[in-house]
Nucleic acid binder design. Structure first.
Lengths: 234, 234
DNA sequence: TAATCGAGGGTACTGAGTGCCATATGGGTG
DNA sequence: CACCCATATGGCACTCAGTACCCTCGATTA
């Protein structure tokens, strides 16, 4: 029933537009009563996002079950990957929906409230798990927004490309950018403070799988690259 | 006319609720024709945000006139202060509106699309002014989202407190947090001045500026070099 | 067999938003 | 003064989303 309504709705939305399609058009094509539409979808917009309610519940469940001693930021990133996986599971559908939401203001507004709920779920998780910090609430809001923005950036470039290419790679880069921006201030990445600042020399920490490089700002690029090569070369 | 419609609408929204108030109620209280309402506000929700269209145009004008050699992130922060000033100019109105939008889902959704337009304006500015960076588009999206989240965090705590207290101080702290995370030197070098002092660590000295780069050990060389270029270049 | 229950259908209603036309009002020109 | 024109406003009728209420039908159970 849900499935047939979604199929009928998308067929009409794509061939004549969202606003040019009425609920009566949809239910008559699907062969069901008009009243039944609103049993399955609270509004006309919701039929375009039939899987988000489930994805949101999946995300909250994932965050609830996340280990308490893990990195909350990394958990938030993983949670956003869950949502991405929902999109990637049906590229054709996702691309068609993307083109719809880009053009119809009402659908864009509806998507914003959907995404807002994801962001609130992430922020709440970050706030609860990072309550020991002094500015925990602010950090939670900002990091959640950054994670969602990175997710949207990766997702939308993939959708713009018609669902071709490697979403996960783009997602890795986008989330990596956020993680780099916010993780050094985290409890697990303290060793940056042990590096002397009086020269350009890489330092390698065998436990943390990161390379910390310190360079003077005016240092020639070739020299820095040589040092980076030496540090990464393994 | 606009003013009388807004006054009548808010009086009714506050005394009997948003959804319990019809357009006819508003226009009969304001003493104007029903058709005139939709001449001034495209929807019932818009009457709750009568000043956002102007604020959005003010923000885009501010960003357009911003000096090309300035720090785009700082300009984005200043642009968000403009919006905050609009809220702070009428605390009573802002607090009443906040309580409305918190309770009415339709108003929350509408506010989200308003805020989304601010965020897009910021992201576009950051993308244009930071086009030289390699991952400029991603950075623009993430920084814009972070600035908006910081703005909302400061604004909402002030609104929750009933409009009492120092908004600007909260805004300084929130934007300062974002600015530290995304300082001009780039994501890799950002935390250099923000690392808590639990040992000897590099300090940002105006004479001898130091760049701290953190990279995952398995990271491809080109990616690291790209970050180094970004950090050293500016 | 009777009672119940849940899924779906039908009908009538409210209210937001739109298109079209009528009506002022006010300023300028002959 | 008469006329014209642009703009602001009011009125009317219409579409359509969303809701309340009640109906039917089939399956299960006492």
């Amino acid at each position: 029933m849900r499935e047939s309504l979604v199929r009928a709705a998308f067929q009409l939305f794509l061939e004549r537009g969202f606003e040019q399609t009425t609920i009566d058009d949809i239910v008559s094509l699907a062969g069901v009563g008009r009243r039944s539409f609103f049993r399955y979808f609270p509004s006309k917009e919701d039929v375009v996002f039939p899987d988000h309610e489930g994805a949101l519940q999946g995300m909250t469940a994932f965050l609830r079950e996340a280990p308490a001693d893990g990195d909350p930021v990394a958990q938030a990133c993983d949670a956003s990957r869950l949502v991405l996986a929902m999109y990637a599971a049906d590229p054709l559908f996702s691309v068609q929906r993307y083109r719809l939401t880009r053009e119809v203001p009402g659908l864009r507004a509806h998507e914003l409230s959907v995404v807002w709920r994801y962001e609130r779920a992430l922020a709440e998780h970050l706030r609860e798990r990072g309550a020991d910090r002094s500015d925990g609430a602010l950090r939670a809001d900002v990091v959640a927004a950054a994670v969602v923005a990175a997710h949207n950036h990766a997702l939308r470039s993939w959708l713009r490309a018609g669902g071709e290419g490697d979403v996960d790679a783009a997602m890795d880069e986008a989330l990596g950018y956020v993680a780099r921006a916010f993780s050094p201030a985290g409890p697990s990445a303290a060793p940056a403070s042990a590096v002397p600042a009086d020269g350009a020399h890489p330092r390698q920490d065998p436990d943390e799988q990161v390379v910390v490089l310190v360079a003077r700002k005016g240092a020639p690029l070739w020299q820095v690259v040589r040092d980076v090569e030496g540090a990464l070369g393994q």
